[in-house]
Design a protein around this nucleic acid. Structure first.
Length: 503
RNA sequence: GGGGUAGUAGCUCAGUUGGUUAGAGCGCCUGCCUGUCACGCAGGAGGCCGCGGGUUCAAGUCCCGUCUAUCCCGCCA
């Protein structure tokens, strides 16, 4: 090779941190976010952007071939009474009025169904003004899907096809369809969460029957007052350190446990436990049989209301798995993708604080037809036509068949959810009207695209698959957003700041 | 709103029971060498120890407050 001429287009200053993947991966993230344009030069970050682009293209190709239309819906929407806290946008042209940034295109896409679109999808930006987490951003992206004349089975097949297509094109991995299905009740019973990671066992076991009449009052009393006794055998974790046990107990307590009872089985097979003295010989034998207890095991108990007991042990199960992985006694292979559907969710949950029912998914979810009569008599027992798609312990999508009958929707708003009629009219009047014009039965689902890509990329944080993510306080460190505005701008939008310093 | 972790050189970190001029690796600068490629050699610059108080003869180190980032709980129909 011979150089004919050399042009220096620009001279670079020394970058503030190394740009090779190995070193930069350990650099403070706030520094990387300040210089995001440099961070994105790293091969690993560029790879993630490319992967994201490929996933989006595979999605579009798939839905295009399936006859779906990609339709954009407004980001500037109106505030809705239930659901996530919204970002408010003051209206200059309408003094004192506000838009809300759409939490999702939910209501628009249902209107598209009424409009006869029949097959809609969109890779949509959504906004929620809630506190952030490693897997949450204030603005995030959904693959949003809705179709008319569709039932749950159609939706499962459609979505499985989409995921198979994405996995094939992005990773060249064949995933097995159809996905297994798990009822919400069973997911909670066996795994203690509604988004189980089924790549490993350590399943929860119900011992309520065994301890119903036990001499151990704590367990027997819980069962007789309607609670449950559940246990989890963390196989091979008997050598958990004091610190690890304390962490597990604290995790359990944070979920409402009073403590975390356990039995530690020494390598010699001796059972050690503060509660062992309360168990009869028969109970010990049954425990050993049911839980398959062997030397080296560590068994945890939770005795309280069903849901809480499940949740507590569900958390202990995940934490135990991590500890076992650390010891090399449990291995979760990279590249294993356990997709599954969680179905048969309750339609309503009773919200103690508000003293009323709230929608488990959202108020547009249709009840299972045969459960409709229960709406009046026993709302808690009504199952919704709701489905979640779960991958390796992550809820990657959720959706439902919707209510399309105006009278039923009105009933759910006013009678079940106890939203005042005038509020219903103000917020949802247009929907109820729309449904009166021959709304087709319809349903849909929405995927968290950022999470999906992070799982494809094998990255633990969605910030790593978003070009310009925000910090936990919702700031963009590169551009320094949000920032202050001039008094003139505030006047334009009819806003006065109260009690805010440093303007 | 609550709890945990972290903050020392451009970056990653060390810094003992509080004790003299705060160190290392990488990077940077200068020179030398060079078919090099995690080059090598010699030399050098670079520090409000996050910020503000306090204790003390003496604080990077102890105490209080605060800021920032992050993880979690609440929250996320």
């Amino acid at each position: 090779m011979a150089v004919g001429s050399l042009v220096i287009h620009n001279i670079s200053e020394t970058p503030p941190f190394p740009l090779d993947d190995e070193k930069a991966g350990r650099v403070n993230e706030d520094l990387r976010l300040h210089y995001r344009y440099l961070d994105l030069r790293r091969p690993g970050m560029f790879h993630a952007l490319k992967l994201r682009s490929k996933a989006a293209k595979a999605t579009r190709d798939y839905f295009d071939e399936e006859g779906f239309l990609e339709i954009e819906t407004p980001c500037l929407f109106k505030s809705t009474p239930e659901g996530a806290r919204e970002f408010l946008v003051p209206s200059r042209l309408n003094a004192g009025k506000f838009y809300a940034l759409a939490q999702s295109p939910q209501q628009y896409k249902q209107m598209l169904m009424v409009a006869g679109v029949e097959r809609y999808y969109q890779i949509a930006r959504c906004f929620r003004d809630e506190d952030l987490r490693a897997d949450r951003q204030p603005e995030f992206t959904q693959i949003d899907i809705e179709a008319s004349f569709i039932e749950r089975e159609d939706m499962y097949a459609l979505v499985e096809g989409m995921l198979a297509r994405i996995w094939k094109e992005v990773l060249d991995v064949e995933i097995r369809t159809p996905f297994p299905r798990l009822a919400y009740r069973e997911a909670m019973d066996r795994y203690g969460v509604d988004k189980p990671d089924t790549r490993f066992g350590l399943e929860l076991v119900d011992l309520s029957g065994l301890f119903k009449a036990s001499a151990f009052k704590v367990f027997a009393g819980t069962v007789s007052s309607g609670g449950v006794v559940k246990a989890l055998n963390a196989k091979g974790l008997a050598d958990a350190t004091q610190g690890e046990m304390r962490d597990l107990e604290n995790a359990a307590k944070s979920l409402g446990a009073k403590g975390l009872a356990f039995i530690r089985v020494t390598p010699e097979g001796e059972w050690k436990s503060p509660i062992l003295k309360f168990f009869s010989e028969e109970e010990r034998a049954e425990l050993k049989r049911i839980l398959g207890i062997e030397p080296g095991d560590l068994v945890f108990f939770a005795a309280t209301e069903w849901e809480r007991a499940c949740t507590i042990l569900g958390r202990v199960r995940l934490d135990s798995a991590k500890l076992l992985e650390k010891r090399g006694r449990l291995s979760i292979p990279q590249g294993q993708y356990n997709f599954l559907w969680v179905i048969e969710f309750p339609l309503m949950l009773f919200e103690e604080e508000q003293g009323r029912f709230v929608a488990a998914h959202h108020p547009f979810t249709a009840p299972v037809p045969e459960d409709v009569p229960l709406l009046d008599t026993d709302p808690k027992a009504v199952r919704g036509q709701h489905y979640d798609c779960v991958l390796n312990g992550w809820e990657i999508a959720g959706g439902s068949i919707r209510i399309h009958q105006p009278d039923l929707q009105k009933r759910v708003f006013e009678e079940i959810l106890q939203i005042p009629a005038d509020v219903v009219e103000e917020r949802f009047g247009y929907m109820l009207r729309a449904f009166k014009y021959g709304a087709p039965p319809h349903g849909g689902i929405a995927f968290g695209f950022d999470r999906l890509v992070s799982l494809l990329a094998g990255k633990p944080m969605i910030r790593d698959v978003i070009a310009f993510p925000k910090t936990q306080k919702g700031q963009d460190l590169m551009s320094d957003a949000p920032g202050s505005v001039t008094p003139r701008q505030l006047r334009d939008v009819h806003i006065e700041l109260a009690g805010v310093e440093d303007m």
